[in-house]
């Protein structure tokens, strides 16, 4: 259990980062040109009403005290009110988490399902035609703009073949699944391009490792050497790569949710930006940042569990 000790201490190292995240999101909203009270009141803004809002939200206090209030409210789970939706930002975000979370998870699973066979094909034929083909395809794949790929998949699968719905989310489980296939595939195709490149490199190293040689010397068939020994070891760096790319993945969901009109956090962020709903922008940015920190932590735990040699 000694090697799991970091699980207790690592969160302490997160404190400065979380503090920084709160400062940056606080500054983001304070930098907005114009008076938030005026935005909040809209047409009803009279000097007395503005002064009342200033006093109510502590906007007439010094900036460091405002930051203190901001933290205090965060502690109580209050992130302000959405101007557009007229409800608490936190409540609003909670209703939007499910589609985004499901989208991210299915994309990751799908991308691994695509990347593992591709990388295996390339690594086992290192330097041959199949390898070159996989490398060219994955290098091309990195440059696919998700918003465009999404539309191309819609043309192919929804318009021409009529298999999947064009956009939206659905209500029942089956309906949701049907609506999420194309969006997940969009992200998975882009992500698998990145994963394939790194998996292939890791597999080539593992194929030449002592471990693999020893397994072959014991008379193990090459396919068992590969799937039982090489694959698990080469997946370790891929887990970290996934964690590093979580920010990129979230960016992808922001775009893809907008293309497919999925009511997730990404779509909420884009709508909030257009309607100048700054409290929502702040809330979503903060939740996404905390999720990124959490995913990196989870990736560390998974790495230590999968690979007993790793010490953190």
């Amino acid at each position: 259990m000694h090697r799991y000790r970091f699980v207790l201490f690592r969160p302490l190292q997160f404190l400065p980062v979380l503090f920084g995240i709160s400062v940056i999101t606080f500054i983001l909203v304070r930098l907005i040109p114009g008076d938030p009270a005026r935005v909040l009141l809209g047409a009803r803004s009279t000097p007395t009403a503005i002064a009342r809002i200033h006093a109510q939200y502590g906007l007439d206090e010094p900036i460091w005290l405002q930051y203190f209030y901001f933290l205090q409210n965060l502690g109580k789970g209050e992130m302000g009110k959405s101007i557009l939706f007229k409800i608490d930002v936190l409540k609003l975000i909670l209703t939007r988490i499910e589609p985004t979370l499901v989208l991210v998870l299915t994309s990751v699973i799908l991308s691994i399902l695509i990347a593992v066979p591709m990388a295996a094909l390339a690594a086992r034929n290192n330097g041959r035609l199949a390898d070159h083909a996989v490398r060219i395809v994955s290098t091309l794949g990195i440059g696919f703009p998700p918003f465009w790929l999404a539309l191309m998949l819609i043309i192919l699968f929804s318009v021409k073949l009529g298999i999947f719905p064009v956009s939206g989310y659905g209500d029942t489980l089956l309906d949701k699944a049907a609506h999420l296939i194309l969006p997940s595939l969009t992200i998975a195709l882009s992500l698998s391009a990145v994963l394939t490149r790194s998996l292939r490199a890791a597999m080539i190293v593992e194929l030449q490792s002592d471990l693999a040689t020893a397994a072959r010397a014991r008379g193990m068939p090459e396919s068992i050497v590969f799937w039982r020994h090489v694959l698990p070891n080469s997946l370790v760096p891929t887990i970290n790569l996934l964690a590093v790319n979580i920010g990129w993945l979230i960016g992808g969901t922001v775009v893809v949710e907008t293309v497919f009109a999925i009511p997730g956090m990404g779509q909420l962020l884009v709508r909030a930006i257009f309607s100048r709903d700054y409290m929502v922008v702040q809330g979503v940015a903060m939740v996404f940042a905390c999720a990124t920190v959490l995913v990196n932590f989870l990736a560390d735990i998974v790495t230590v569990t999968v690979d007993p040699r790793v010490r953190l």
């Binding site: 940056i24 993945l249 979230i250 922001v254 996404f288 990124t292």
Partner: peptide
């Protein structure tokens, strides 16, 4: 780096 790149850009 803790912020998703596109999210911080958009903000």
């Amino acid at each position: 780096l803790a912020f998703p790149f596109l999210v911080l850009m958009l903000s």
